[in-house]
C-alpha cells in the first residue's frame, strides 16, 4: 500500500485535428501535467472550458490513450510511453470509476435504472445469482438516497438530481477505491447541488474513497477538495492546499480566476476589486510559445515567450509555473 494512490507524470494528450504529413495538426489538450493524489484525499481540478481538465480525468483512466507520459496506480504502472507499457485495464476498472457531467446523456434511455446500476456487476461477475445481484442493486440505490421501487423505472422518469444519483450508484457498483468526478454537479439546480455535494462527502467517509473532482466552479471545488490544481490551456499552472490556493495564490492566472468569481455577499462584493483579464483563451491548436498564459498576463515579457516556465515546488506543497512569481506577489 503506497501513500500515493494515483500519480501522473508528464501526461500528454494530443488529438489529431486534420492535416497531412508534416502539416498534421494537433489539439494540444493536455501537455506535461504532473500530479499525485494521496489515498483518501480529494484533489480538485479547476479551469475554464477547453483547458483540458476533463481530458486529464479521462486520460488518467485511459478512456483516451495518452500520447505521452506515465500513469501509476497504487504502485502499478498502468501506462508508460517510454517503456512501452500499456496494461489491460479491466481489473483496474473495478478500482477506478468515473461519474460523468451530464446526467441526461450518460444513462442509456432504453435500460432500466436497475440494469444500469447492475451492468458493472455483470461485467465484473460480482454477484453469484440473480437474487444477490438484485440485493446489491437495491443496496446501491439506497446508498445514494433512492429506493427499491426506482429500480424498475427508466432514466427519463427521474429529475436531474436523481439521475446524477443513478450515475453515482453505477460508479459505486464495483466498490471502487478511486472515482473521477467530472463536473458532477454543474447540470443541477442550486438547491440540489448541496445535496449531491454532501452525498459525495458522506460516501467518501463511509467507503474511504479517493476523488479527482473536476469542476469549473472554484467555490464548490474549494469546499470539497483537500488540494486544488488549476489548469490553463492544457497545462497545470498552480497546485496547492485548497485554503492556501484560494487565499494566497501565486500564479497571476489563479489570482484573476479567483477575483473573477462573484462573491455571494454584497458587502465583500462592493469592497473587492476584480482583476479582469483581457481577451479570450487562445486556441489549443496553436497555443502561444513559452508560457501559454502570456497573451493575457499583465506581467508577461520576452522571457515568457521564449521559455516554458517550469512547474516547481515554490513553498512546501505549493507548486506553480511562472517566471515572475516574485514580481507578481
Amino acid at each position: 500500500m503506497s501513500e500515493r494512490l494515483v500519480e501522473v507524470q508528464h501526461l500528454q494528450q494530443y488529438f489529431p485535428a486534420g492535416g497531412w504529413g508534416k502539416n498534421k495538426r494537433y489539439v494540444q489538450a493536455v501537455d506535461d501535467v504532473n500530479f499525485f493524489i494521496n489515498r483518501g484525499e480529494t484533489l480538485g481540478l479547476v479551469g475554464e472550458s477547453g483547458c483540458g481538465k476533463t481530458t486529464t480525468g479521462r486520460t488518467l483512466l485511459r478512456l483516451y490513450e495518452p500520447t505521452d507520459g506515465r500513469i501509476i496506480y497504487d504502485g502499478d504502472v498502468l501506462f508508460d510511453k517510454e517503456k512501452k507499457i500499456a496494461v489491460n485495464m479491466l481489473p483496474y476498472r473495478k478500482k477506478m470509476q468515473i461519474v460523468f457531467q451530464d446526467p441526461y446523456a450518460s444513462l442509456d434511455p432504453r435500460m432500466t435504472v436497475g440494469d444500469i446500476v447492475g451492468e458493472p456487476i455483470d461485467i465484473h461477475h460480482l454477484a453469484s445469482g440473480s437474487k444477490e445481484r438484485y440485493d446489491r442493486i437495491i443496496d446501491l440505490l439506497r446508498r445514494v438516497g433512492l429506493n427499491s421501487e426506482h429500480a424498475n423505472r427508466y432514466p427519463h422518469e427521474f429529475s436531474g438530481g436523481q439521475r446524477q444519483r443513478v450515475g453515482i450508484a453505477r460508479a459505486l457498483a464495483v466498490d471502487p477505491e478511486f472515482i473521477v468526478c467530472d463536473e458532477p454537479i454543474s447540470a443541477l439546480d442550486v438547491s440540489i447541488q448541496a445535496q449531491v455535494i454532501n452525498m459525495f462527502e458522506d460516501l467518501q467517509e463511509s467507503m474511504g474513497l479517493t476523488y479527482l473532482f473536476i469542476a469549473h466552479d472554484l467555490s464548490v471545488v474549494k469546499h470539497i477538495s483537500n488540494r486544488i490544481g488549476v489548469m490553463y490551456l492544457g497545462k497545470l499552472v498552480e497546485l496547492a492546499d485548497s485554503y492556501e490556493l484560494t487565499m494566497h495564490s501565486l500564479h497571476p492566472y489563479t489570482k484573476s480566476l479567483i477575483s473573477a468569481i462573484p462573491i455571494a455577499d454584497p458587502v465583500t462584493a462592493r469592497k473587492s476589486k476584480r482583476i479582469v483579464l483581457e481577451g479570450d483563451v487562445p486556441s489549443p491548436l496553436n497555443p502561444p510559445s513559452g508560457c501559454r498564459f502570456r497573451t493575457r498576463c499583465p506581467y508577461a515579457d520576452e522571457r515568457c515567450a521564449m521559455e516554458t516556465p517550469e512547474f516547481k515546488e515554490v513553498e512546501p506543497g505549493h507548486y506553480a509555473a511562472c517566471h515572475h512569481l516574485d514580481r507578481c506577489n
Binding site: S159, G161, Q162, D189, V190, S191, I192, Q193, A194, Q195, I197, N198, E201, L218, S219, V220, K222, H223, I224, Y243, T246, M247, I258, I261, I263, A264, D265, T268
Partner: peptide, 24 residues
C-alpha cells in the same frame, strides 16, 4: 436555505453545507 446551501470561497474551516431537502 439558498444562502446556506452555497459553499463560500472565503470560508476557513470546512463547514458542511445545509441543503434544501426534497425536489423542486
Amino acid at each position: 436555505g439558498l444562502l446556506k446551501s452555497i459553499p463560500r470561497l472565503d470560508a476557513r474551516e470546512h463547514e458542511r453545507l445545509v441543503p434544501i431537502e426534497g425536489t423542486p
